[in-house]
Structures are given as structure tokens and as C-alpha cells.
Amino acid sequence: MQYQATVRIEQKAGMLDPEGTTAKRALGQLGYQVSSVKTAKLYEIVLEAESAEVAEQKVDEMCQKLIANPIVHNYTIELKQLN
């Protein structure tokens, strides 16, 4: 079975998000008053696995080992079957 995992990575609560803060300031200069801007990173990973559970487990492992840094990031995984 082929699956596509969408991994969303964001900074843990309380951490600085300099890119978000800068974007917020720049929006302000364009006349948009927004309460906050937060950045996140998105990865789409396509993989073969016997089942959705196995696919999710594998992607979680990938996040722990490489895609995210658990010291500074929280992440969510959304899975969809492709075929």
C-alpha cells in the first residue's frame, strides 16, 4: 500500500519564532494588524507500508531520528492512502 504522510513541524511553546515575529512586523508595515504569526515546516513523505499503522509508526521514527529535533519541535503526522 502506498501512503502519503504530511508532517507538520513547529517550535515548542515558549520558544522564539523569529521568522514569525519578523513577518508579523512586516505585515504591520503593510497595514495589516494581526495578533500573531507562527511559522511551521511541512514535509510530504510518500512510502510503501503494509498498513496505515505501520506507515505512521515508520514516519514517527523518521521524525524522531531526523525530520524533527524533539528538543525544540512538536510535530503532527497526517496520513492518507494513495492507491
Binding site: 517550535q11 520558544m15 522564539l16 523569529p18 521568522e19 519578523t22 529535533n69 528538543i71 525544540v72
Partner: peptide, 10 residues
Amino acid sequence: EGALTTNEYP
């Protein structure tokens, strides 16, 4: 230990 992330002023 720890991590190095984007400078406060990016």
C-alpha cells in the same frame, strides 16, 4: 545537550 536555533534577530 540543547539545540541551536535561529538567532533572536533572524
